[in-house]
């Protein structure tokens, strides 16, 4: 989250917007966002249909010792202007790779090779 916060000025120039999604409740997220001084929205999705739909959480093995799914997935997804998922990466975000990909998307959108 902090890494995305640092790159916001570049994301904005690339006409990209960042939305964070968490299973935590809104009050926890608000505190978290304030502690990191985040300047983009953080959505609460406790159920968590968004994480499942975007494949961030594994409902396949390995499960936690109590048999419950792994709810701690971390996934970066880039959706283009047509609503198509164009980039997926698990783990810590690689902001340089993300910036480069967004530049490619923007060039594609503008018809620049």
């Amino acid at each position: 989250m902090e890494a995305h916060n640092r790159e916001l000025y570049l994301y904005e120039r690339l006409n990209a917007r960042v939305v964070g999604v968490s299973m935590d409740d809104p009050i926890t997220n608000k505190h978290f966002a304030e502690s990191l001084d985040l300047h983009f929205p953080l959505l609460s999705n406790p159920l968590p249909w968004m994480g499942l739909r975007y494949g961030a959480y594994s409902h396949k093995p390995p499960f936690l010792p109590d048999g419950s799914p792994m709810w701690f997935g971390r996934r970066t997804v880039i959706i283009d202007k047509n609503g198509i998922v164009r980039y997926i990466k698990d783990g810590s975000p690689d902001v340089k790779e993300i910036l480069s990909f967004l530049l490619t998307l923007e060039k594609e959108f503008r018809g620049i090779k």
Binding site: L10, R13, L14, L103, E106, R110, I112
Partner: peptide
């Protein structure tokens, strides 16, 4: 560095 090169790329496409 990456960011200096990236700034140049952005300027090339008018951003």
């Amino acid at each position: 560095d990456f960011y200096e090169s990236f700034e140049e790329e952005l300027k090339k496409i008018g951003l």
